[in-house]
C-alpha cells in the first residue's frame, strides 16, 4: 500500500483556505478515500446518523505526480482528524511561502503515507506525512491517521458513496446562500426541528414551529433542475404554508423535517465559497440533499472536477 503525491498551489489554496475549515465544522474526523482518479473526504458515511458530507476532487485539482497503489484496486481509505490536517497544511504553507510565489518545484509540499514507530511504542503506526523544504528550514509533519480500512470496509464506503450520489428528482437553486445562512443563524435558537418543503414550481419553504411561535421563510421562483411544474395561479395569494400543503397534495411538492442543528451545519459549507447551491428531497423523503456548485473561475460553467454535497437525515416529527 503506497501513496505519494505533491500538493499543487491551487490544491493548497483549496484545502487550506476553503475546504478544510468547512469540513472541520461538519465534524472533527472524516474518512479520506484515495482512488486512482479522485480524492474524497467523507463524513458519516459508514457510521452514525449525523449529517453526511462528501467533498470530492479530481486528483489533478489537488495534486501532481500522484502515485497510489494498493491490493484493493488501488484504493486507500482511512480516518483523519481534520483540525490536525488543517494545521499541517497551514504550517507547511508558511514554510513554502518563505520563497514567495516563485518557489522552485523541488520545494513543493509532498504528502505520503508512512508507518512509523511512535515514541514509547512497540507497534508502528500509520501517518500522513507532510514534507516541506523551505529556504532556511525543512519541516516534516506527521499527521496520525487510523489504520487503513480493510477491504470490506472500503467496499462498504464506496457502495455508500455510490448511493449518496443519487440525485433527488427535483432540485431548486438557491442563488444567495449568505441570505439563508444569516436567517438560519438567527432562527436556530427558536426551535430544534426545521420543516423543509420543496416544490416543482421552484419554491423552497423553511419553517420552525413550536407551541409559542411559528417562523418561516419562503423563497419563490427559484431555478428548478429535474422535475418541474407550472405553479397554479390560484395559489398565488395563499399563505406560504397553505401553498406548500397544496403542492404536496398535488404531488408537486415534498416536505421533510430535519434538525435545525444539521441544517445550520450544512450551511458551513459556504466557507468553501461555492457559486450556488441546490436543495432537493430524496424519493420517499429519505433525506434532504444540498449540492454545492462551483464554477470554473471566470466563467459560469460548472467545474466538474470539484464536488461537494451534504445529505441531512430526516426526523420523525411525531417523536419530538
Amino acid at each position: 500500500m503506497k501513496f505519494k503525491a505533491f500538493l499543487t498551489e491551487n490544491g493548497v489554496m483549496l484545502l487550506e483556505r476553503r475546504f478544510l475549515p468547512a469540513l472541520d465544522k461538519l465534524g472533527k474526523t472524516c474518512h479520506l478515500l484515495l482512488t486512482k482518479e479522485r480524492v474524497i473526504f467523507l463524513h458519516n458515511l459508514l457510521n452514525g446518523d449525523g449529517i453526511q458530507c462528501i467533498a470530492q476532487f479530481q486528483k489533478e485539482v489537488l495534486f501532481d505526480d500522484y502515485r497510489i497503489s494498493s491490493q484493493n484496486e488501488d484504493c486507500i481509505a482511512f480516518a483523519v482528524d481534520l483540525s490536525l490536517l488543517q494545521r499541517a497544511v497551514r504550517s507547511s504553507v508558511s514554510i513554502c511561502s518563505e520563497f514567495g510565489a516563485g518557489g522552485s518545484p523541488s520545494n513543493r509540499l509532498q504528502i505520503k503515507l508512512v508507518k512509523k514507530l511512535p515514541p514509547k511504542c512497540t507497534q508502528p503506526m500509520p501517518y500522513l506525512t507532510f514534507e516541506t523544504k523551505g529556504y532556511k528550514a525543512a519541516v516534516i509533519q506527521d499527521v496520525p491517521i487510523s489504520k487503513p480500512l480493510p477491504r470490506a470496509q472500503v467496499l462498504e464506503l464506496r457502495a455508500a458513496l455510490e448511493l449518496a450520489q443519487e440525485l433527488p428528482p427535483t432540485l431548486v437553486q438557491v442563488p444567495d446562500l449568505n441570505q439563508i445562512q444569516n436567517y438560519v443563524d438567527r432562527m436556530r435558537h427558536l426551535g430544534e426541528m426545521l420543516n423543509v418543503s420543496i416544490s416543482k414550481y421552484g419554491d423552497l419553504h423553511l419553517q420552525i414551529s413550536t407551541a409559542l411561535v411559528s417562523l418561516g421563510a419562503e423563497f419563490r421562483k427559484l431555478l428548478v433542475i429535474g422535475e418541474k411544474a407550472q405553479a397554479p395561479p390560484e395559489d398565488e395569494n395563499l399563505s406560504a404554508e397553505t401553498r406548500h400543503q397544496r403542492a404536496i397534495m398535488r404531488q408537486d411538492g415534498q416536505s421533510v423535517h430535519v434538525s435545525v442543528k444539521h441544517f445550520a451545519k450544512s450551511l458551513q459549507c459556504n466557507l468553501t465559497k461555492p457559486d450556488c447551491a441546490f436543495y432537493g428531497i430524496a424519493p420517499e423523503g429519505a433525506s434532504l440533499t444540498v449540492i454545492f456548485q462551483f464554477f470554473v473561475p471566470g466563467t459560469h460553467q460548472t467545474d466538474k472536477s470539484i464536488g461537494l454535497h451534504c445529505r441531512l437525515p430526516v426526523l420523525d416529527p411525531g417523536t419530538n
Binding site: 407551541a211 409559542l212 418561516g216 421563510a217 419562503e218 423563497f219
Partner: peptide
C-alpha cells in the same frame, strides 16, 4: 421582495 418572504406568528 415578493420572491423571498420571511414571516413569524407569535402566540
Amino acid at each position: 421582495s415578493s420572491d423571498a418572504c420571511i414571516y413569524a406568528e407569535i402566540r
